[in-house]
Every structure is written in structure tokens, then in C-alpha cells.
Simulated assay, not measured.
Amino acid sequence: MSSRHSPSPTRAVLDLQNARSLLGKRLGALLHDQYYFNDEKDLGDIGSLEWRFGERELLSMYLLSDGASVGADFLPSDTPASFEIEPNVTCSWKTENLLAGLSATHLENTKICAVEGILDSFNGQEPLLAGFRVTFETGDSLIYLNQGDNAVVFINALPPVSVGLETRFVTSV
């Protein structure tokens, strides 16, 4: 796995700063890497996000290899290559419009007015940057969250509460 997906003690600060660069921008498109198993869409993992603005400006959000953290940078999403597990059993990914899939196309061309990091701490352990919450000028919010090796998105909803997990929304780490 590339170092892009490797966690480190100091990278959460930079990842949140990168995500906060969305502030004040108008969303052009929000793409994601949709997973397919034997050509059937698997809704359990939303994959990486690619926020697009203007001509060529973008920000990617993705899961880190520790199974709990997220990252953000200014590189295009690296959609995984398709592969066969055995003959006629394939895993593949397709880049798709996330907002269309979530019936939230009204967020296209809206201004982003808040970006927060989601810090999770389990049973008092060191907090991890587990996700991002992006709020639009419409009052709508989108949460991108690492939920146990799966990337999930919540529109205008909070993630479920887990026993022993403390969650905080922050603007700096």
C-alpha cells in the first residue's frame, strides 16, 4: 500500500487542514469509487471521495490503512483496479456521482461554509481522525466516516452512537 494511505501520528493535522481548504468553495461535483461484486453494487462501502471545483481543482478523501482513520489531499482518487477472485467472480470499482446516488444533487454548485474533523476515541485511547463533516450554505451536511474499514456517508444525519466511543467535532487537531 502506498504511503498516501499510511497513518502517522502527525498526519491528522495536515489532513484536516487539507479538508478545510474546501471552505468558501462551490462544489462542482462529488465523485466516489463505487464497489461492485460480480457487477452488483455493494452499498456497504462508499469508497474514496473526490470533491471537484472549478476547472481542475480537487480534494480527495479516503480511508487510511489502519482501519480507523481518514486522509485528505489534493491528488486524484486512486480507483482500485478490478480483479478476479476466481473464474467468473470479480471485484471492481467504478467512479460515480455520489450526490446522484444519494438523491442530493441539490448540493451541486452550493457553497461550503463549514468543515470539521471527526475525532473518535475508544475507551479513552488516543483520538483518531475518523472522518469529516462538511456543511453547505443550504444548511445540509455531509459526513464522510471510516466505519471499521468501510467508508460511509451520512447526509443530514449523525453516525450511530457506539458504547465506549467518544466522538468530537473539531476545526483543528
Rank of each mutant, 00 (worst) to 15 (best):
L119P: 00
F37Y: 08
D33E: 13
H5Q: 04
V163I: 08
D33I: 02
V163E: 11
S141E: 06
L43K: 12
N146K: 03
Y144F: 15
A72E: 10
N88T: 10
D42E: 06
L58G: 02
D73V: 07
E55N: 07
L102T: 05
F132Q: 02
R56I: 05
K41C: 08
S48Q: 12
R20W: 06
E57V: 08
G47K: 03
A81K: 15
T110P: 06
T167R: 14
L119T: 04
E57F: 03
A100Y: 10
G44K: 12
S3L: 14
D42H: 11
R168T: 12
L14W: 03
A12R: 08
G139N: 00
L102M: 15
L75Q: 14
R11H: 11
I112L: 12
G28Y: 04
A104R: 14
F169W: 14
A151E: 00
I118D: 06
A19F: 01
P9H: 05
L58F: 05
G164A: 04
S121V: 06
R56W: 09
N18Q: 13
N88P: 07
T10W: 07
G117K: 01
F83W: 14
I112Q: 06
V153I: 15
S48C: 09
F122L: 12
D45P: 02
G139P: 05
A19Y: 02
Q147V: 02
P87A: 09
H5F: 08
Q125W: 10
L16I: 05
I143M: 01
L119Q: 09
D45Q: 03
F122T: 02
A114G: 09
N123P: 04
G164E: 03
D78W: 08
D39I: 09
G54K: 09
L128K: 15
D120F: 05
G148I: 08
L128F: 04
T167D: 00
L99S: 10
R4A: 04
S141K: 05
R11W: 07
G24C: 01
F83M: 03
L31I: 13
F53Y: 00
A29Y: 10
Y62F: 15
Y35E: 13
S8Q: 05
I143N: 03
L145W: 00
D45W: 00
Q34H: 10
L63Q: 04
L129D: 05
D42G: 12
D140K: 04
V163H: 11
S65C: 08
V173N: 10
A68L: 12
N88H: 11
G28Q: 00
T10P: 00
A68H: 13
